[in-house]
Simulated scan of single mutants.
Amino acid sequence: MSRNSFSSFYENTAYQHFIVPFDVELDDELLINTDNLFISDEIGSGGASTVYQGWYDDDEVAIKFIQNYSRNNEEKENLENNITNEINIMYRMKHKNVTELIGASVRPGAITIVMELLKNGSLTDYFDHLNEIDEHLHLTKSIKFALDVSTTMEYLHKGGIIHLDLKSENLLLSDDKTTLKLADFGLAQDSSKVNEITAGKGTYKYMAPELFNREGKKYCSNKYDIYSFSIIFWELLTTKRVYDDEDISWVKNYVLNEEGRPSLECIPVQVIPLLERCWATEPDKRPEFTEIIEVLSDLV
């Protein structure tokens, strides 16, 4: 496995698409010493970032580089705010089911986020593996994973954070595959500072119906995350990817129909009432995570 210093990686021509023309300022306590940072193989990419495996001092870490995109002034300002939010929110979130932030670097033109490394991949990867060997999660384990997600989200919501991109790809498995950890706070919003957001935030297969309305703005609501949780819970119960191979237009039209929800065929009857409440069309009809935890705990 190759092991490149941050400086040599930074100077390499292949690195140039990570040079970001943004001005991001962070508190000194968040900054890392890049002389102690070493970079190895790429392990994932998506959206506006690429993630590498590496080392900080002697610890294996995940290293996230923000990619360069041509943007107008408004988009540039929004991305600067998103990057700053992501780093500050991760730093605040001290929970056993949240991926740990180790630090960040804002070396001129290069924005780098260093995090805990989880080698077993995402919940989506896990579903793919189970389907390959024709296995399903035991109901108890499905509920246990759902409790991991709901207790984490309760913690975020009590801290005034709305995640806005809760999905299986952003839930990583612990080393022993018994615990889920939440990652990627790129779209997360601090509800104490932000009163409204533009509709359309998130990943469309997990987006609440009200977020498909792109006309004007919608008030921030933690009920967005509860709808996303319901889709993840359905995936945990079926080990299937929701709306697999369907595009955004199909999903939008389907979800905006009140009857348009994933099939309840083969879903255990005892969890159906909770699923139906969590993916209700009207946000006010969705329960809070505190109640979801109570219901799941009783089921276990």
Rank of each mutant, 00 (worst) to 15 (best):
M1S: 14
S2R: 14
S5I: 13
F6V: 05
S7H: 15
S7F: 15
S7V: 14
S8E: 15
S8N: 12
Y10Q: 08
T13S: 15
F18G: 06
I19G: 07
E25P: 06
L26K: 10
D28W: 07
N33I: 10
D41Q: 13
S45K: 13
Y52A: 06
A62P: 09
A62Q: 07
I66W: 05
R71G: 05
N78L: 14
N78R: 12
E80V: 14
N85W: 09
N88Q: 14
N88P: 10
K96P: 10
V98F: 01
T99L: 13
L101H: 06
L101V: 11
I102T: 03
I102P: 01
S105D: 08
R107S: 15
G109K: 07
T112Q: 02
M115I: 14
M115S: 13
L118F: 11
S122D: 10
L123Y: 05
Y126W: 10
H129D: 12
E132I: 12
H136Y: 15
L137P: 04
L137Y: 09
L137F: 10
H138P: 09
H138I: 12
S142L: 09
K144P: 03
D148T: 05
T151A: 08
T152W: 02
Y155M: 06
H157F: 00
L166T: 02
L173D: 04
D176M: 10
A183Y: 01
A183P: 01
F185E: 03
L187Q: 13
A188H: 02
S191N: 11
S191Q: 12
S192D: 10
V194R: 07
N195R: 11
G202C: 05
T203W: 03
T203I: 04
K205S: 12
Y206S: 02
F212A: 00
F212T: 00
R214I: 10
G216C: 04
C220Q: 00
N222C: 03
K223V: 00
K223T: 00
K223L: 00
Y227N: 03
F229N: 04
S230F: 02
I232A: 00
L236Q: 07
L236T: 05
T239M: 07
T239Q: 08
K240Y: 08
K240N: 12
V242C: 07
V242K: 04
V242S: 03
D245P: 02
D245V: 06
I248W: 02
K252F: 04
E259M: 12
E259H: 11
E265I: 12
E265S: 10
V271G: 05
I272E: 14
P273Y: 13
L274S: 06
W279L: 01
W279D: 00
T281Q: 09
P287Q: 10
E288G: 04
E288M: 07
E288F: 01
T290P: 01
E291F: 06
I292E: 03
E294P: 04
D298N: 15
V300E: 15
V300C: 15
